[in-house]
Design a protein around this nucleic acid. Structure first.
Lengths: 120, 120
DNA sequence: CGGTATCCAAGCTGATACTG
DNA sequence: CAGTATCAGCTTGGATACCG
C-alpha cells in the first residue's frame, strides 16, 4: 500500500497518522476538544498554558488543513472564532484515551517503585 | 495529582506519557518492537531507514532511561546488542495500534473522497 | 557491529511586540 | 479576541571520520 498525501508518500497508515498527529502539541490540543467542544482560541490557551500562542495557532492551522478540526469565524467585532473536532477528528478519541491510560499506569508504577519520585 | 519525574512536574498522566513517547521517532521505534522482538540496532535501522543513526541511538537511550525498553550487550566480538520492550513498554501496544487503526481509517477516507490523492 | 564526535545546514520552537 | 511579524536559540538531519 502506498499513500500519497500533500506531496508526500507514506507506506503505512501509521506513518500517515504520525505525520498528522505527531506535531509537538497536537495530541494535547485534541485532548482539549474531547473534554469540551467547541472551543475558542482563548479557551484553548487557558487549557494549555505551556503552549505559546504562535505555536498553538500554527498547530491548529495544520490540524485544520488535515481536516481534523473545523474553524468557524463569527462575523462580529471583537472577533469570535470557534474550533471543534471534525468527524474523522473525533475518531482520534481512542488514541488520546489510550495515551492517557498508559500515562496513568506509568505514574502508578512510579508511585510504587521509584523512591526518587513522589506523587502528591 | 502532581507527578514529579526526572526533575519535571506533570499534572496529568497524559502529559507524562507525551513527554516519554512524544519524541520524534519513538512511536515508530516502539512499533518495530511490537512487530518483532528483540531487535539489534542494525535491524531497527533497516526497519526505519528514514531515521539517521545518531537520532535513532539518542531516542533508544531516552526510551531506555525511561524504562520503556531494555538493552542487553552480549560480551562478544564483534559487538552484539539486543533491544526489547520492557513490561511497561509492552503496555504501549494499545497506543500504537490505535494510531495505526486511525491512520488506516484516514487513508481509506482519502481513497474515497479526495481526488487529489491516490492510493495504489 | 554498535556506537561516539564533529561540523554544518535546515527546520522547529519560544518570547516578545504589534495589529485590525 | 484572534491573530501576524521578527528574531534568537534549540533540535534535528546528513555527511563524514573514527573507535573498541
Amino acid at each position: 500500500m502506498v499513500i500519497h498525501y500533500k506531496d508526500k508518500t507514506f507506506f503505512t497508515g501509521k506513518d500517515l497518522a504520525l505525520s498528522i498527529i505527531g506535531g509537538r502539541w497536537k495530541i494535547s490540543i485534541i485532548w482539549c476538544f474531547i473534554q469540551q467542544s467547541p472551543l475558542r482560541l482563548s479557551e484553548i490557551q487557558k487549557k494549555l498554558p505551556d503552549v505559546n500562542q504562535r505555536m498553538l495557532i500554527r498547530q491548529l492551522r495544520e490540524l485544520e488543513d488535515d481536516k481534523i478540526i473545523t474553524r468557524f469565524v463569527y462575523p462580529v467585532v471583537p472577533p469570535k472564532v470557534e474550533y471543534q473536532l471534525s468527524e474523522i477528528g473525533r475518531l482520534l478519541e481512542p488514541v488520546v484515551t489510550s495515551i492517557c491510560d498508559w500515562g496513568d499506569n506509568f505514574s502508578d508504577l512510579l508511585e510504587k517503585n521509584d523512591n526518587k519520585t513522589s506523587v502528591d
